[in-house]
């Protein structure tokens, strides 16, 4: 599974989404992305990576794309749809 698909799966499970998620979905565009589901997103991402995220990485999780970026960076980028440069997604995207 590539990183975008894995990111969509993690987000969909954490957010208990009924419809498939887009890579462009963000915490601002998804009403079900609330504080508790955000916790689930982070914990599922940490489970997938097998380690705890740093605070900077936690800050970067604001979209499905940012999850894919962290997966790519955390797993060496193999099969990534995003370069490592996209691993950190500015929180201001959701302003």
């Amino acid at each position: 599974m590539n990183h975008e698909a894995e990111a969509r799966r993690i987000a969909a499970e954490a957010l208990q989404a009924q419809a498939p998620l887009s890579i462009d979905d963000t915490m601002a565009s998804l009403p079900q992305w609330d504080s508790l589901s955000h916790m689930r997103v982070i914990l599922e991402l940490e489970a997938a990576l097998g380690r705890q995220l740093s605070v900077e990485e936690i800050m970067s999780v604001t979209s499905v794309r940012s999850i894919a970026g962290l997966l790519a960076a955390g797993q060496g980028g193999e099969g990534s749809d995003n370069g490592p440069a996209e691993a950190i997604d500015s929180p201001n995207r959701d302003c």
């Binding site: 508790l36 955000h38 936690i58 959701d94």
Partner: peptide
């Protein structure tokens, strides 16, 4: 707190900028 994920979500969702971290 760096692991207070709910609170971090609330600040980010309201548009606050992350201006630094004390490690």
């Amino acid at each position: 707190h760096g692991r207070n994920l709910s609170s971090i979500f609330n600040y980010q969702r309201l548009g606050f900028s992350h201006v630094g971290s004390w490690h």
